[in-house]
């Protein structure tokens, strides 16, 4: 993928994450006011399509954003390039996506 598209994708995912991070932190602060248990969290999230979409989108955006960022770090620190760099970037993206979506599934599936 051309560098300019990766740059664009990383900026777009950052834009997507901005309100999601704010929402995540706001709900976290609000929800713990009266103490919090795992059962209470799951009671709110399980079966909720809204929370599934909220954190599903979050997981997708993070996976793309972080994979592109780590790609730059790997290129500069390990001098990786070409197909090896592309392969590792895809691996990071898919790994983060799998972990993220698995977690979203675990807390939102009814």
């Amino acid at each position: 993928m051309p560098e300019v598209r990766l740059a664009l994708l990383q900026k777009l995912t950052a834009l997507v994450m901005l309100p999601l991070v704010a929402g995540h932190i706001a709900v976290m602060i609000y929800a713990v006011q009266g103490g919090l248990t795992a059962a209470e969290i799951l009671g709110r999230t399980q079966g909720s399509l809204a929370w599934a979409l909220f954190y599903g989108l979050f997981a997708v955006a993070v996976s793309i954003h972080a994979a592109i960022g780590l790609r730059a770090v790997l290129h500069e620190t390990l001098a990786l390039g070409g197909r090896a760099l592309a392969a590792v970037t895809w691996l990071i993206f898919l790994g983060l996506l799998a972990l993220g979506l698995r977690a979203v599934w675990a807390v939102t599936a009814a």
Binding site: P2, E3, L6
Partner: peptide
């Protein structure tokens, strides 16, 4: 500028 090693490599 948009190619590999171009402006998007700048941190």
């Amino acid at each position: 500028a948009g190619a590999k090693g171009g402006c998007h490599s700048c941190h």
